[in-house]
Amino acid sequence: MTIVDVQDLTKVYSTGMRKGDIVALDSVSLSISEGEIFGLLGPNGAGKTTMLKVLLGITSITSGTATIDGFPPGNPRSRVKVGYLPENHRFPDHLTGLGLMELTGRLHGMSQKQMDERSDELLKLVGMERWASVKIRKFSKGMLQRIGLAQAMMPDPDVLFLDEPTDGVDPVGRTEIREVMKRIRSEGKSIVLNSHLLSEVESVADRVAILSRGRLIKVATVTELTSRASQYEVEADFGNKIIKLPEEVGKVVSMASRLMIVELTDPERINDVIDDIRMNKIKIKSVKPVTVTLEQSFMEAVSSHPEGAAQ
């Protein structure tokens, strides 16, 4: 079931008559399902943060539509079961860690009992229980991210918007935050993750959208983005034998004594390749699609659409 739906969304910032307008989002359409971690990728200025701000009603829509759980961003009901960790946040620094949790709870209309229970649980989850009574202004960057994540989870959100959640967090903290995200997903909740750390997105996201200059250039699963559907890696004892493929099947990209990479005209043709190898009495150890990192895939997508073009 779709929890976030965006159709032909355009956001234009007016910067004054002389400078002209800035198109931050240009006819973007996408949808995010329940129980999904959805990554938003893009170079600086691609429109990732604007997308989150528009969905949360922080910034207005120029044209198009957006809904969260069926409600448009202007409607406060769209934010009842929503958590948000903004990028470069500046939480009210006159509050303590617990004070921030309680303020968030009150703004979400929670009772004192609910707030007490939830605060205890979440402060423990993010490892901040010892710092609950310390003023936020004394927190380090990593601690601010942890408390930020905890406040975002305070209303037990159905959808969590995280803008650079691991920014300034040490490697141990990053791993913990990734585990928290996976746990939230396992509860059937959705996460919209905006991060520059592609390895982080790759390790947790189910699907990603790549934005460039305000345009959506690709939406795909992480598996689709990181695999070369037409290329396969075959591990076998080739020895000195040379495998040649018919043109209608594909071609051999590289060949070594134990490894061969083939590019096929159709992924189904891998069976023909296997048959061919077996006919040569060669023992196959493994056959798997060639994969690339999300970073490589991202760079290819962005460089192939320098002006940003919907696909």
């Binding site: 949360l56 009210p92 979400h108």
Partner: peptide, 15 residues
């Protein structure tokens, strides 16, 4: 209350 970063916090609440 409405500085960049803090406005995001308050405006993202269901009010």
């Amino acid at each position: 209350m409405m500085v960049k970063g803090r406005a995001d916090y308050f405006l993202s609440k269901p009010i």
